[in-house]
Amino acid sequence: MFRKISLFTMSAALLLSLGLSAHAAESMVLKRIKERGSINMGHRESSVPFSYIGNDGKPQGYSVDLCMKFIDAVKAEIEMPDLKVNLVPVTSQTRIALMANGTIDLECGSTTNNLTRQKQVDYLSTTFITGTKIASKKGSGITEIEDLEGKTVALSLGTTNEKAIKRVAKANGINVKTLMVKDHPQGWLAVESGRADAYASDDVLLYGLISKSKNPDKFQVTGRFLSFDPYGIMVPQNDSLYRRIGTVTLADLMRSGEAKKIYDKWFNPGPTNINMPMSATLKTAFEIQALPH
């Protein structure tokens, strides 16, 4: 049985790659990767555990692992097994611009797939589902956004969380002071050092920040979801051939259960003890996105 399946996958992959190579000339992204002899992978530096700099100074994480599978498929597609991978650090403010202007060929971070951004970039399948929540010190009396009346909340510039908090606060007439920060560590530092009362971000990232802090017991993540944020790997716009390589890779990983294994490696409990078993929503999302060949 095993043999049969692997033979089947192999031949399918072969057929697929043959079918794709016939069109390869039409993919601008593949063409530039080929000419350059390298692929530019955008990554974050502190999106734990999706894409962050490990102790060895190299990016690692859930998104990075998935991206590496995608890059393997690209290597096979253009028949360049020695393709160089250039690591390009990006931030929440630079990632879209760098994708839109062609600096990076894929972005492996914790980027929400939304319709506004799709005007500039495309996304592969959803690989994670989260939403905006609030992290604060235990005993601060903060649970919901309503409790932030007259208090200071740190927000990362250019994130969906920033927009979500401002939108909800405005709609409900809550008077929140905001402190604009560059990235997650700066936002977290604001809470830890007492400069801000809370930091608003995707709940999973907040758990990640807490798990890496010096006193994880002192902090909490609370409140209802203030936004719906499905993550996806970002790819350049208007290149369906290139994007399809990613869709196929992810569908295969989700179908075979390997995606779940990679998930467990980083989240259950994960190297930073984040301890987030796969949610039912994400499980369903994986099943739906495991498209047949």
Binding site: Q93, I96, A97, A100, K119, L157, G158, L179, M180
Partner: peptide, 22 residues
């Protein structure tokens, strides 16, 4: 802007981020 004052350059970046009209 590096410590969160939204002055001219920071606002230009923010507009770029929101509208992609860099």
């Amino acid at each position: 802007l590096t410590i969160g004052v939204l002055e001219t350059t920071a606002q230009a970046r923010q507009i770029e981020e929101y509208t992609f009209q860099g």
